Amino acid sequence: MSASIKSLIDLTKARRTIYELKPELPTGVTEQEITALASAIIKHTPTSFNIQNIRAIVLYGDANKKLWSSVYEATKEFPFSGRPKSLAETSYGTIVFFNDQTTIDEISKKFEVYKDNFPIWAANANGAAQIDIWKAISAMGLGANLQHFNPWVQESVKDKVDGSWNVVAQLAFGVPAGEAGEKQFADYEIKEFR
């Protein structure tokens, strides 16, 4: 196995959900590097029919705290509201991922036979970008956790994005303040056929 393939596997293994964060960046890492990294990965993530549906914004500082505080306020009656409250206090930043519905609608009109598949393919591409960015920021020394407070985040950021952008996920990040939990693996092997 080549060194570059081994590195890719190592990055995949190292990408873990870290809930305990400090609102800091690792020494030598800048906000500009994180934003540039996310931009490059999104630009080069393959999308069906090259529709390039993936959009993102990165929230730092007060914008990040405001996001998670507003999500907490909107969800505080729910049992899961502890997560956004914690993220308002512990995360340094958040990458909010979107799908541009206009691009999905336009390609669906051109290729009606696939119209039911385009939302699925758009979600697949978005997920690929999320995982690649997550691996990359983990390699930079950041811990992260992926959240799906989509309707509340959509409401919180509506003045920052185009109206056709629909929230898909949020990747909150900061310096790890704890370890990932024990990971369980399914007993599954890929079968080969010839």
Score class of each variant (00 low, 15 high):
residue 1 M to N: 07
residue 3 A to P: 05
residue 3 A to R: 08
residue 5 I to N: 10
residue 10 D to W: 04
residue 11 L to M: 13
residue 13 K to D: 09
residue 14 A to C: 01
residue 15 R to M: 04
residue 16 R to V: 11
residue 22 K to A: 12
residue 23 P to K: 03
residue 23 P to E: 06
residue 24 E to G: 06
residue 26 P to C: 03
residue 27 T to K: 12
residue 30 T to S: 15
residue 31 E to R: 11
residue 33 E to L: 05
residue 34 I to N: 00
residue 35 T to H: 06
residue 37 L to F: 01
residue 37 L to Q: 08
residue 47 T to E: 07
residue 50 N to R: 05
residue 56 A to M: 09
residue 57 I to E: 08
residue 59 L to T: 07
residue 61 G to H: 04
residue 63 A to F: 05
residue 64 N to L: 01
residue 66 K to Q: 15
residue 66 K to D: 15
residue 66 K to L: 13
residue 67 L to W: 03
residue 68 W to L: 05
residue 72 Y to A: 00
residue 75 T to K: 07
residue 78 F to K: 12
residue 81 S to G: 09
residue 84 P to K: 01
residue 89 E to P: 03
residue 91 S to V: 03
residue 96 V to N: 08
residue 102 T to W: 05
residue 104 I to W: 06
residue 111 F to T: 15
residue 111 F to E: 14
residue 116 D to M: 03
residue 120 I to Q: 06
residue 122 A to V: 03
residue 122 A to E: 05
residue 125 A to T: 00
residue 128 A to F: 01
residue 129 A to P: 08
residue 129 A to I: 02
residue 129 A to M: 03
residue 130 Q to I: 12
residue 133 I to E: 09
residue 135 K to E: 13
residue 137 I to S: 04
residue 140 M to D: 03
residue 143 G to K: 03
residue 146 L to S: 10
residue 146 L to H: 07
residue 148 H to Y: 14
residue 148 H to F: 12
residue 150 N to D: 15
residue 151 P to Y: 06
residue 154 Q to G: 11
residue 155 E to W: 00
residue 163 G to I: 00
residue 164 S to Y: 01
residue 169 A to E: 08
residue 169 A to I: 06
residue 175 V to H: 08
residue 177 A to C: 09
residue 181 G to K: 13
residue 181 G to D: 13
residue 182 E to Q: 14
residue 182 E to L: 11
residue 182 E to V: 14
residue 184 Q to D: 10
residue 187 D to W: 01
residue 187 D to N: 15
residue 189 E to L: 10
residue 190 I to D: 09
residue 192 E to M: 12
residue 192 E to S: 15
